[in-house]
């Protein structure tokens, strides 16, 4: 079991009506490493991440988290079978997720957001939950903002609270769906720093991002999607180094003004 990747995606297809958004994805996210999903908008990278979190139903294919099937398991005669909700909950409890829009609950303070699931799901007492939540906020540098409501925090601070909220539940895998895309440029740094530190602790991470610099320096595996397919995958040097795929060249051109040129 330890030899299996943290996430194994096999033959995943996602259709919306007649449109195929993902056209048969095979992907392994290695344990303890940062896998970055890149690609132009509409390439299916966020959809893939949401399928891995089972926030989207896949139309076909299988996803394993830590060796356990999520959502669908292999059935007889080569098909797949829907797994019971309890199994989905159990497997998904290994995954933490951060969203582009942070999705903090607006009627709860930072502390309330981080401690909520500890109380309702993990059955901690209010006091234990808040102590744990406080420790998590400390890690993202926001202990002093614990009593603030989301509307009183900057975007970067909100995303850091969201990261603390996910980490409080001690996931084995963290998924990030464009965590800095709705932030002002000067706020992305603080979020990327928290993520960089998290990566250093050996957390398995899958990050959908447009931050090429982050992907190149923190990612150990780069997966480039285009039109619902994996176009190129490999180490940052393999993907970004020369000679490189013409499509990636074209994609990077649009990011040169973000300082990616110097890194590559």
């Amino acid at each position: 079991m330890t030899s299996s990747p943290a996430i194994r995606v096999r033959g995943v297809v996602k259709r919306y009506g007649a449109t195929e958004v993902l056209t048969g994805i095979d992907l392994d996210a290695p344990r303890g490493e940062v896998t970055c999903l890149l690609g132009p908008s509409g390439s299916g990278k966020s959809t893939l991440l949401r399928c891995i979190a089972f926030l989207e139903e896949t139309s076909d294919g299988l996803i394993e988290i830590d060796g356990e099937p999520l959502g669908y398991g292999p059935g007889s005669n080569g098909g797949r079978v829907r797994l019971p909700p309890a199994s989905i909950r159990a497997v998904r409890s290994n995954i933490g997720m951060c969203f582009q829009q942070f999705n903090l609950w607006p009627h709860m303070t930072a502390l309330g957001n981080v401690s909520e699931a500890l109380v309702t799901v993990r059955k901690f007492s209010r006091g234990e939950a808040e102590a744990r939540a406080m420790a998590e906020l400390e890690k993202v540098g926001l202990a002093k903002r614990a009593t603030h409501y989301p509307s009183e925090l900057s975007g970067g601070q909100q995303q850091r609270v969201a990261i603390a909220r996910a980490l409080a539940l001690e996931p084995k895998i963290m998924l990030f769906d464009e965590p800095t895309s709705s932030l002002d440029p000067e706020l992305t740094g603080e979020v990327l720093n928290v993520m960089r530190r998290l990566a250093e602790t050996g957390m398995t991470m899958v990050v959908v991002t447009h931050e090429i610099g982050f992907a190149a320096s923190v990612g150990s595996k780069i997966v480039f999607l285009d039109h619902g397919k994996i176009l190129v995958e490999g180490s940052p040097t393999q993907v970004f180094g020369k000679p490189r795929h013409a499509r990636i060249d074209q994609f990077l051109d649009t990011y040169l003004d973000r300082g990616a040129a110097g890194l590559l």
Binding site: A53, L55, R89, R92, S93, I95, G96, M97, F99, Q101, N103, L104, W105, P106, H107, E116, A117, T120, V121, A162, R165, A166, L169
Partner: peptide
Amino acid sequence: VPKGLLEAADMCGIGAFDTFRRIRLPI
């Protein structure tokens, strides 16, 4: 109620009843 707030609850493992009581209704 923004769908993302419910997805966040889902990803935290919060069940349907607690999500209704603690998140959907107050909002």
